[in-house]
């Protein structure tokens, strides 16, 4: 992809982010941080590329280490968000 297309996606995504995040209810700001943490670990894509490709042994091991770190975050982030969200309950109707 050429630079301008990538930049367009980036700028538009910033606007989407702006509106989506303002609509998040303040009560869920902690889960928001946990889940953004989990999804920013999509950086694992870069780590997988580094560890999958031949060419440099050093790059491969750096990549594998990054895969471990990002996986801690992905599993930990989504799991802890799930755990928090499960606690939010409405008043029981009697």
């Amino acid at each position: 992809m050429d630079f301008i297309s990538i930049l367009s996606i980036f700028v538009l995504a910033c606007f989407v982010g702006y509106y989506v995040v303002w609509s998040v209810t303040p009560a869920l700001h902690t889960p928001l941080m946990a889940v953004t943490n989990a999804i920013s670990s999509v950086i694992i894509v870069g780590a997988l590329v580094a560890s999958a490709e031949a060419g440099s042994a050093a790059a491969k091991y750096l990549g594998l280490l990054a895969v471990v770190l990002a996986s801690v975050n992905i599993f930990g982030g989504f799991a802890v968000t799930e755990r928090m969200l499960a606690m939010y309950k409405k008043k029981e109707r009697k």
């Binding site: 943490n37 750096l62 990549g63 990054a66």
Partner: peptide, 26 residues
């Protein structure tokens, strides 16, 4: 959450270093 942030940051550094060492792969 702070600890998780640090992991994302370190992963980014490692991926960047790997890309610098093996640019062909990227």
């Amino acid at each position: 959450v702070a600890a998780f942030h640090s992991l994302v940051g370190l992963a980014a550094v490692l991926v960047g270093a790997a890309a610098f060492l093996n640019p062909g792969a990227f």
